[in-house]
């Protein structure tokens, strides 16, 4: 689904990613874990075309996308649930969702809205409310729902657990598992390594711009170095 080959990118003049290669097979959940400042967000920005890579290739659904503009990349079937959610606070919940399905014909849009409201009943209750008035957890649901409205082949998530209470984190991750079972491939970027690796099939560890470990997430969860550095043991 997504293949990244020898990708390097800089944040200003500071190198943020060096020679990163990773692979997200169709249907899987892949977790990318790393501390603050490891380059996780830069990677997300580079995949989605908000930032240009210095070298390397990004292949999404068999096509190189690293030179495309953001909207074109996303319209190929990618959706990002960005760090900090970035919902539109002055638009209503419903309007936020509609924008996620901006190019859907009316009938499909209505069906997709109903589906999202079924997945997140809390959003249904607050359809006409301004998104800015939602709680943090609800905003995360909205960001997720908005990303799903385009029926993406692949969903990128940047720190979906950030700022959420542990119970809500569990809820979000359960929802992700459900979304994945419906056939959406997921690349999950997280600081919350334990939760992310428990959910994922495969994991990568990013350290100051380089990948240091990778493997089936079960193995990573038991890897002594990963345990000491990211699982607090």
């Amino acid at each position: 689904m997504l293949k990244i080959i020898n990708l390097s990118a800089a944040y200003g003049s500071i190198p943020a990613l060096q020679d990163v290669s990773l692979h997200v097979p169709a249907g899987q959940i892949v977790a990318l874990i790393g501390a603050n400042g490891a380059g996780k967000t830069t990677l997300m920005r580079t995949i989605t075309g908000l930032q240009s890579p210095q070298t390397g290739k990004i292949i999404f659904r068999n096509r190189e996308i690293q030179h495309l503009a953001t909207p074109e990349i996303m319209r190929r079937g990618l959706a990002l649930c960005p760090e900090g959610r970035r919902i539109f606070p002055n638009l209503t919940v419903q309007e936020n969702l509609i924008l996620g399905g901006y190019y859907s014909p009316d009938r499909r849009l209505r069906r997709d809205l109903a589906e999202i409201y079924q997945l997140f009943p809390r959003l249904a209750e607050r359809q006409q409310q301004r998104a800015g008035t939602l709680s943090g957890g609800e905003q995360q649901m909205l960001a997720l729902g908005r990303a799903l409205m385009s029926r993406p082949h692949m969903l990128l998530l940047d720190e979906p657990s950030l700022g959420l209470a542990p119970l809500l984190v569990q809820e979000v991750f359960k929802t992700l598992a459900r979304i994945n079972r419906r056939g959406t491939t997921i690349l999950l970027v997280e600081q919350n390594a334990a939760a992310a690796l428990k959910l994922a099939h495969y994991g990568y560890v990013l350290e100051t711009g380089r990948l240091s470990f990778e493997g089936p997430s079960h193995d990573l969860l038991h890897h002594p170095k990963v345990r000491s550095a990211y699982l607090g043991e």
Partner: peptide, 20 residues
């Protein structure tokens, strides 16, 4: 809606695939 979204957050709008 898209215009209002764009006025608020350019990147987030582009990330929805909307032709900015």
């Amino acid at each position: 809606m898209a215009l209002r979204a764009l006025a608020h957050d350019w990147e987030a709008t582009a990330l929805l695939g909307i032709n900015v």
